[in-house]
């Protein structure tokens, strides 16, 4: 039972971690919270679900399309709601992002209606026993995919030219420009990558809970933000750790404390972290 809950928590936690990476990367480079991250997640899920519902697209292609659509939405969002406001008081882009978030949510509501959509294809998932632990292959697949994407991101940031350039912009924008790095392009690239990860998270959750709906981004967005704070906002390994910890805490809390207030657990953790250690578990910005 305990191990099962732990596994459930790791599964949802790995998805929170993917969204938290988007928050943390964008915060790292712009010093701003992208309030519409949850809507980008929702967009990824909808694009994949709608494509699959046509019956003409295979699963992997739909998954990739969800990620790309989310990434493009992120880039567009940066152009419209963030870039024109660079240099203004930090309240201004914050409120503008809130506006964008509401806009996207209500646009989805108008286009797709308020009801849950089931995931269009039925997977047959079995339960296998690994070391005496019943493991659903669905959870295994989500966990593997999420960890794989995180690994790719770490490799990208640490070992590629553009990854290092993004970190350089986050650390010291002017000096990065002196290296010939185009900061605007790096910001766009950051939004692209962070949003693609959120889009992937959206598709995974659409499968896991078998539900896609316009407001689906609100709670995961809030929880992922808490995860990013927990790990130290701006810190990439911190966001991953924070997401996993939060998922586990939520799952154990729901099982052993109260299931009615499951969604409140992340929030309680957020307040606790802000009170006790606002810089998060792993400090710092940048890499």
């Amino acid at each position: 039972m305990f191990l099962q809950q732990l596994l459930n928590g790791l599964t949802t936690g790995s998805v929170y971690a993917l969204i938290a990476l988007g928050y943390t990367m964008i915060y790292g480079i712009l010093g701003l919270i992208n309030f519409a991250q949850g809507e980008i997640y929702m967009c990824g899920a909808f694009v994949a679900v709608l494509l699959l519902a046509t019956g003409k697209v295979n699963f992997y292609l739909a998954f990739a399309a969800g990620m790309v659509a989310a990434a493009l939405l992120g880039v567009a969002l940066e152009r419209v709601a963030f870039r024109p406001l660079r240099g203004a008081h930090p309240l201004v882009p914050l409120i503008s992002a809130i506006g964008a978030s509401i806009f996207l949510q209500s646009l989805a509501l108008l286009l797709f209606g308020p009801n849950d959509r089931p995931f269009p294809i039925q997977f047959t998932f079995s339960t296998i026993t690994v070391a005496g632990l019943p493991l659903s292959t669905l959870q295994g697949a989500i966990l593997a995919a999420a960890l794989g994407l995180m690994g790719l991101l770490m490799v990208f940031v640490r070992y590629t030219r553009y990854g290092k350039a993004i970190v350089a912009c986050a650390l010291d924008r002017d000096t990065a420009r002196l290296m010939g790095i185009n900061v605007d392009r790096m910001v766009a690239l950051t939004f692209f990558i962070g949003s693609a990860l959120s889009g992937a998270a959206g598709v995974m959750m659409a499968i896991y809970y078998n539900a896609t709906y316009p407001r689906m981004g609100l709670l995961p967005g809030l929880k992922a933000f808490s995860a990013a704070i927990l790990g130290g906002v701006g810190n990439i390994p911190g966001a991953i750790l924070g997401g996993l910890l939060l998922g586990v805490a939520e799952s154990l809390g729901a099982a052993y404390v109260s299931s009615g207030y499951k969604d409140a657990i992340a929030f309680a953790i957020l307040i606790g972290v802000l009170l006790l250690r606002p810089q998060g578990i792993l400090k710092g910005r940048g890499d």
Partner: peptide, 20 residues
């Protein structure tokens, strides 16, 4: 009425860009 939130969201972004 159905468009209310859509309009409010767009209004916030537009106002902050053109007339903060």
């Amino acid at each position: 009425q159905a468009y209310q939130d859509l309009i409010y969201g767009a209004l916030l972004v537009a106002l902050l860009i053109w007339r903060p």
